[in-house]
Amino acid sequence: MEHKVMNNVRVYGLEESVIASGYPMKKSYHPELIEGLPETLTKKDWKRAKNLANTPPASGHDCFLKGVIVQFDLTITEKMWPQFQRYTFADFVSSMSTIHMLSKMNAEYIKYTDKKIIKDFEDIVADFNCDPSRDNWLRMIYSYPSGLLLTARITTNYLQLKNIYKQRDKHPLPEWKWFREEMLRLPHFKEWCTGGKLDDSGY
Results as ranks from 00 to 15, higher is better:
Val9Thr: 09
Arg10Lys: 15
Arg10Gly: 01
Arg10Glu: 09
Tyr12Glu: 13
Gly13Thr: 06
Gly22Ala: 11
Lys26Tyr: 09
Lys26Glu: 14
Lys27Ala: 13
Lys27Leu: 08
Glu32Ile: 08
Ile34Ser: 12
Gly36Asn: 14
Gly36Ser: 12
Gly36Tyr: 05
Pro38Ile: 06
Thr40Gln: 10
Lys50Leu: 06
Asn51Cys: 06
Leu52Tyr: 09
Pro57His: 01
His61Pro: 00
Val68Ile: 15
Ile76Cys: 00
Ile76His: 01
Lys79Ile: 00
Met80Glu: 15
Trp81His: 04
Trp81Lys: 12
Gln83Phe: 02
Gln83Ala: 10
Phe84Ile: 01
Phe84Arg: 00
Gln85Ala: 11
Tyr87Asn: 10
Ser94Lys: 07
Met101Asn: 14
Leu102Ala: 15
Leu102Val: 13
Lys104Leu: 03
Met105Thr: 10
Ala107Pro: 00
Lys119Arg: 14
Lys119Leu: 12
Lys119Asp: 08
Val125Trp: 02
Asp135Leu: 14
Trp137Thr: 00
Trp137Tyr: 15
Leu138Asn: 15
Tyr142Met: 05
Asn157Met: 05
Leu161Arg: 07
Lys162His: 03
Lys162Glu: 03
Asn163Leu: 12
Ile164Asn: 04
Lys166Phe: 05
Gln167Tyr: 09
Lys170Asp: 09
Lys170Cys: 03
Pro172Asp: 07
His188Ile: 00
Trp192Lys: 01
Thr194Asn: 04
Gly196Ile: 04
Asp199Phe: 03
Asp200Asn: 08
Ser201Lys: 14
Gly202Ser: 10
Tyr203Leu: 15
Tyr203Thr: 01
